[in-house]
């Protein structure tokens, strides 16, 4: 799954370089968004979907720190 998600993130970065629509206005999506803008709005939504997959299936397993593993408060005996 990690490889698939890495590949999807790489795909996002490649899709971002959308040179294929560099010189185009049409089609105008929803009647007001030229394709060069609509595609990047779609890319923002796609990014959220890919990152949802990332946090669901590629969440690091060494980052959950329980309170007892945390560093002791500094100056714990100092006056307040």
């Amino acid at each position: 799954m990690k490889r698939l998600i890495l590949a999807l993130i790489l795909l996002l970065l490649i899709l971002h370089q959308d040179i294929w629509w560099w010189d185009r206005i049409d089609p105008v999506i929803l009647g007001f968004m030229p394709i060069g803008l609509a595609f990047h709005v779609f890319l923002s939504i796609l990014t959220a979907v890919v990152y949802w997959l990332a946090v669901k299936y590629w969440w690091p397993n060494d980052v959950d720190v329980a309170d007892h593993e945390a560093a002791a408060p500094r100056n714990s005996g100092a006056e307040l």
Binding site: H40, V41, L43, S44, T47
Partner: peptide, 8 residues
Amino acid sequence: GLMASASG
């Protein structure tokens, strides 16, 4: 695309 989708 230059600033917003890249930042996202």
